[in-house]
Every structure is written in structure tokens, then in C-alpha cells.
């Protein structure tokens, strides 16, 4: 479904990623893990079009995304839950969800998808008229995921959904992700919380200093001694 090859990206004079190769098959859940500053967020941004790659290819369902204007990528079926949620703080929950259904293909389905997102996250229904910036961190994360789901994506990119949340809430967020998987979405998730994310995904890539150091099934990585030492603290 998604194929990244030879990807290089950065900001100004800084090269954050180089020679990245990565694939995601339909129906899979794949994680990218690694330390702070490894380039995980940059990778997500390069896939969803927030950042133009300097070299290499991002191919989604056979189309090279370099040829697609950034604001058209969501129509193709990639939705991105950005780092720090990035809700529109002064819009209501429902308006935030409406922005998720902005693309022409999604608009006719707004009502039914809203209903669906509310059934996934009943809390959001309660808060529908509340201004998003006044909600708790966990609720905001729900809203951000809901917003991305409004476009009914084929591939959902999630950038650190558990960041900045209290441990109890982190568990809830991982439950959410699990439910989204069960709904049949293909997920590419970036996490620092390696232990929990490996319980959730099929495969994972380990990203260090801008390049992929290791990859494998979640089970294999969990038993890899180096990974256990560096990321799982065992």
C-alpha cells in the first residue's frame, strides 16, 4: 500500500532523514520507534505532504506522491494525526471534525461519518459544542484521531498519540488505537512508548539518527536483546 524508498528530507541545512526504506501493506499496523530527534516526526511529515522530500520516493497505491499537491494527499486516503494533536483550539469539537471532512470526496458523507466517530468516541458527542482548546489532553487526542478518521482514510498516520498524557490516559489512547485497528484501518504509528506499541502492531522499524537501523515483526523485536536493552529497559 505504502512504499517509501531512498527518502531524504530535512529543514534548511539540516538533513533529518536519509535513505529511508519502508513499506506498509494493507491491513497492517506498523510502528516506527526510536529515540527523540531520530527523525520520526519528519518521516510522518514527508509522507503526508507537510514536508517536501529532497530525494527518494513515497509511493501510495502505485502513485508517486511527489506528483500530488500536498493538500490533495488526504483525498488519496492518507490521514495524519500530527504530533501534539494540533486541533484548532478555538473551533468546537464538531467544527474540528468538520475540517477533517473538508475534501470534496468526504463532504457528502459528513453526517454518517460524524455519527460513526461519535459512536467510536461517545465522549466526543458529549463535547460536540465545546471549544476544543478547553478539553483535557486525552479528549483532545480523541478529537484529533476522530478528525483524521472523518476522511475515512485507507492509511492512518499517528505521530506520538500518547505524548504528554498521564499514564492512565495513555492506556486509554492505546485502547483507542487498538479499536481503530479492529475497524480495519491500516495504521502507521510513531511512538516513544515502545513497550506498549509493540503489543499493538504487526511490525516495527527502528529509526536512529535519521536512518532505519532495524526492522522486523513485533515479536522478533521484543525478543531482540539490543532492543530490549535500549528501548524496553530490560
Amino acid at each position: 500500500m505504502l512504499e517509501v524508498a531512498g527518502l531524504e528530507a530535512g529543514y534548511g541545512g539540516f538533513r533529518a532523514l536519509h535513505d529511508i526504506a519502508l513499506t506498509v501493506e494493507a491491513g497492517e499496523a506498523v510502528a516506527v520507534v526510536g529515540p527523540n530527534g531520530a527523525g520520526k516526526t519528519t518521516l510522518m511529515r514527508a509522507i503526508s505532504g507537510l514536508l517536501a522530500p529532497r530525494a527518494g520516493r513515497v509511493v501510495f497505491e502505485g502513485t508517486d506522491l511527489a506528483a500530488v499537491p500536498p493538500h490533495r494527499i488526504v483525498e488519496r486516503g492518507i490521514a495524519h494525526v500530527p504530533e501534539n494533536r494540533r486541533l484548532f483550539p478555538r473551533l468546537t469539537v464538531e467544527e474540528n471534525l468538520k475540517m477533517g471532512a473538508f475534501s470534496p470526496a468526504a463532504r457528502p458523507h459528513f453526517a454518517e461519518r460524524l455519527e460513526w466517530v461519535y459512536s467510536l468516541f461517545p465522549r466526543m458527542r458529549e463535547r460536540r459544542a465545546q471549544v476544543a482548546g478547553t478539553m483535557s489532553g486525552g479528549e483532545q487526542q480523541m478529537c484529533a484521531i476522530g478528525r483524521a478518521l472523518m476522511s475515512k482514510p485507507k492509511l492512518l498516520l499517528m505521530d506520538e498519540p500518547s505524548a504528554g498524557l498521564a499514564p492512565v490516559i495513555v492506556d486509554q489512547v492505546f485502547d483507542l488505537v487498538r479499536r481503530i485497528r479492529q475497524e480495519g484501518f491500516t495504521v502507521l504509528i510513531v511512538e516513544q512508548n515502545v513497550r506498549q506499541v509493540l503489543e499493538l502492531v504487526d511490525r516495527a522499524y527502528v529509526l536512529e539518527v535519521g536512518t532505519i537501523r532495524k526492522s522486523g515483526t513485533a515479536a522478533a523485536l521484543k525478543s531482540d536483546p539490543a532492543i530490549r536493552e535500549a528501548y524496553l529497559g530490560i
Binding site: G49, L50, P70, H71, E75, H80, R86, F88, G100, F102
Partner: peptide, 17 residues
């Protein structure tokens, strides 16, 4: 709605399409 949203977060508007 997009007009109101863009003033709050310019960058991620692209993600909304």
C-alpha cells in the same frame, strides 16, 4: 470553517485537504 481554522493553525490546513 476553514477560514476560521486557518488563522489558528496555518501549517496543518494541508492535512485537512
Amino acid at each position: 470553517t476553514a477560514i476560521r481554522a486557518i488563522a489558528q493553525d496555518r501549517e496543518i490546513m494541508v492535512l485537512m485537504g
